[in-house]
Amino acid sequence: MDSPRDAAGRRSANADVAPRGGRRGRRIGAVVLLVLVTGAGLSVHAFAPENAASDIAGDALYAAAAYFAVVMLAPSLRPIVVGAIAAGWCVAIELFQLTGIPLLAGAAFQPAMLLLGTVFDARDLVVYMGTVAALTGLDAATAVVVGRVRRR
């Protein structure tokens, strides 16, 4: 999708911001999805056996929660910007695990593990990026469809 341009062909200063219409609906949708994804993540954590599949599911749900949290906080951002922020958060948290601090924090206060994780795993980065890329694409496609419906 091309960036908005002015009459002289210059990129608009608001190119990273979505059109005004629909912010409230996008925020409400993000809140609902964040609640659902968080519930699913907590269920995986509490009830799924500890194996690769549950680890991957948890990572995907974590990345989805990051994406929906960004939309909730800044619904006017374009999907690519939301995706970049969510991916950056996930990578930063995963790299932070290399310090050992999240493991210590989790030992002292177990719920911290849900937000910070415990130990670095490169596979997590792959799952985060795949999930964020899929959500970014889905969000962008939804924006196109909603925009077409609104123009009718």
Rank of each mutant, 00 (worst) to 15 (best):
S12T: 12
G21I: 08
G29K: 06
G25W: 08
F109N: 04
L135R: 03
A18Y: 01
A92I: 09
G130I: 00
T136P: 01
A87C: 10
V119M: 15
A87R: 03
P79R: 06
R20A: 15
L73A: 15
V35P: 07
A69N: 07
L34M: 05
R78A: 00
L115A: 12
R26M: 09
T142E: 15
L116Y: 00
V91R: 04
N14Y: 12
Y128L: 06
L73Y: 08
L114V: 10
H45Q: 14
V35E: 11
D59I: 07
A84W: 03
T136I: 01
G88E: 02
A133S: 12
I85S: 04
L34K: 01
T142A: 15
A46M: 11
P111Y: 00
Q110G: 05
D121L: 12
R23W: 12
L34Q: 04
L114P: 01
A7T: 09
I56T: 15
G137D: 08
F120Q: 05
T118F: 06
R151I: 12
V35I: 14
Y67E: 04
L114F: 10
L115D: 01
V149R: 13
P19H: 09
G58T: 01
P19V: 14
T136D: 07
S76K: 02
R23V: 07
L33H: 05
V31R: 07
E50Y: 13
G29N: 04
R150K: 13
F109L: 08
A86F: 05
R26I: 07
V91G: 02
S12W: 08
A74G: 09
M72F: 10
V37Y: 02
